[in-house]
Design a protein around this nucleic acid. Structure first.
Lengths: 212, 212
DNA sequence: TGTACATCAGTGAACGCGCGTTCACTGATGTAC
DNA sequence: TGTACATCAGTGAACGCGCGTTCACTGATGTAC
């Protein structure tokens, strides 16, 4: 193998290789289970060369968090890119599809977030939970603009958006576990139905609550 | 400290102390992050004494899984203990309360399940996911008996129960994170509203779906 | 009840291993003239 | 273009540490007579 490019290019390529190896290896255990020596071996460098790219293992972890959040936000941006003509159902269905598509594209990043969200307590877990809380709040403001939202209180909005985000996080996890494309479509189909059910529930919430 | 009881008593007490120490320590990291030497230190025995009680660290892990599942099943039994006079709303509200109460009582076990469910791949995670799948199926059969269930297809039942279980798992996690009792009550209140919303959605699902 | 022996929970030394991190180094790439 | 020097990504030896596990042991508890 002939190495090409400037010294800076090569350095960047090694850094990228370290990040990729770390994502791959952490998928087999946990971020906390990562070992610098393992990563170095996977990349094909000597352990000490790692320090040319990151000051410590923890900094590598933070870089992975950063990258993964970029993928997450990219997805959210796509979800919110609604046509003005879209119906509620269309927005719901499209949102699930956008999620499924991004999970497929940025699989390693979503898997990283899913794994570390419930994992070891610490700054990484806290950062992920905070990010998801932000999603809930953003969704609540989006939901407030829906046609049927007139009857909802602020608490209804908060509660509904928390429920929807929980369901979407769970859907993302199920998509990550789906090995075959048909299974992925099943998961997406279920998620679409669930999202519609939640919206139907919310729409009938104030106007026709449960009897008893 | 004077040690009392027969030799068998003392042995059982040490075994219990090991399990408790393991639950406590694994809460600070992960089951996979547990170290035999840490556990032994916490219990106050020499590392090698551990082997008088468990053949290996892995067996200790399986014992924790077993104990935790017993707590989980105990809760499910309580949830399903419905009065014949209870309305749907009453069943829903009581279910959330039963969950909250059991999470409070068997906190360490529920925390263990929550942590390992999304944690390191392996037999423990698989066992937990399988157990949750069983919950979904049981719930689906329970839901089929509801007054409003006549219009639902088998898929509706499956999709709804998956949604409810996801929401309850998330509620359990939120309860575990709640430090103060008032925060716990907030979480329970939100969970009750969400559960009602989902049921309202399901009840109007076939009769009055979303327009568009 | 008293004695002789068996059991076995807990001890302490020792092992080989992978870990993160340090340090002085090498030699190809880059730069100044 | 050619040369002399600087830079710096990657090397390899070494460190101290906590790990799981082995082994022969100790001495209090339990049991048989």
């Amino acid at each position: 193998v002939t190495e090409t490019g400037t010294r800076a290019d090569r350095k960047e390529r090694t850094r990228r290789a370290i990040l990729d190896a770390a994502l791959r290896l952490s998928a087999e255990t946990t971020l906390a289970g990562l070992s610098l020596r393992q990563v170095a071996k996977e990349v094909g460098i000597v352990p000490t060369a790692f320090y040319r790219h990151f000051p410590s293992l923890e900094e590598l972890g933070l870089a992975l968090v950063d990258e993964s959040f970029q993928s997450l936000r990219r997805m959210l941006r796509d979800v919110r890119r609604a046509e003005p003509t879209e119906s509620v159902t269309e927005v719901a269905d499209r949102s699930v599809d956008v999620l499924a598509q991004h999970v497929r594209t940025d699989r390693a990043h979503f898997a990283f977030i899913a794994r570390e969200r419930s994992g070891q307590p610490g700054p990484v877990r806290d950062a992920i939970r905070h990010e998801i809380e932000l999603c809930e709040r953003e969704l609540a403001t989006d939901l407030a603009l829906l046609p049927g939202a007139r009857g909802w209180t602020g608490e209804d909005l908060r509660v509904l958006s928390a429920l929807i985000v929980t369901s979407m996080v769970s859907t993302a996890e199920a998509l990550l576990d789906a090995e075959r494309p048909e299974r992925e479509e099943e998961v997406a189909h279920t998620a679409r139905t669930q999202l519609r059910m939640m919206l139907v529930g919310a729409l009938h919430w104030r106007s026709a609550p449960l009897s008893g």
